[in-house]
Amino acid sequence: MNGCAMTAACWFQPLLLLLLAPLIQGCARKLKACLQNRTGASVLQPYWDLLKNLRKEEVLSETASPVMRAAPYAAFSATFLACFLVPVLFTASPLGFAGDMIALVYLLALPRFFMALAGLDAGSAFGGMGSSREMMISSAAEPALVMVLFSAAVRAGSTGASETAAALAAGGPSVLGPGLALGFIALFLVALAECGRLPVDNPATHLELTMVHEAMILEHSGRSLALLELASSLKLTLFLTLLANLFIPWGMAGGTEPGAAALSAVAFLLKLGALVVTLSVVETSTAKLRLFRVPDFLGIAFVLALLGLLSEGILRLGL
């Protein structure tokens, strides 16, 4: 294996995520539609929506400041940058040397900050409502997310996403333990909240009383809307990738040998597919929570992550 091929393969990973993101979203929508006895749009529909929005004229509120104009770019680029920190097909990641999983958490917080600002900036009542709800949810989700990532990191003895994934992938069946199960469930619950899925937020609704994410981006149109939509589908893909690579770590390739890489790609797509199916089933079978129950929901995630951390790390309880 030469360094050049490895580097090229690494840099290809975030692009793969970017290309896959609308497809993942389309698949989740289609599966949900099938489970609800609807026909549903094609799985490629999110791509067409993106192209349509990119070509459309952008309409801005009269009260909007430059923050509103800049927010979609900031949100998208921070989310895309976060993709450079996670291992996808190979255990190495292109910017893994520059930031660990703590940086990842904050890169995911940055888009939310800008989107909340933009929501307030447009001067519509819905935007402000969405922003305040999103902040409330994220303040409960972030500690749980940090705790989950730490529970994976203590096994590897490093907070780097690549090192952690490599250590877990090398462990084989021996990593299948209580910590893995607890962490998986916790991260899944956090992902539901962070990506605005049911039971925390309904991604398909524009009903004024219930929307959170959609309320924040309500005033955006044209290219801005396309970027924000892409950022949110990228975020979902990122979370599913984290779930797949940190908590179902088998099958990842350490190097870039064609055989291992092909196997890794197949394993990754299978894991992603399984996660999308799980997500759709969970979303179809649960009702949306009342907003003030959301901290309780994330409290469960936090407690599970804490137990995972305790069982794997600090106390070496090995539950």
Partner: peptide
């Protein structure tokens, strides 16, 4: 041991589920 500790840890999770 691995199977038993995995299953009993899930039993602990269900105890927490009953609490929640």
């Amino acid at each position: 041991p691995q199977a038993v500790s995995f299953l009993t840890a899930l039993a602990l999770v269900s105890a927490f589920a009953a609490l929640s």
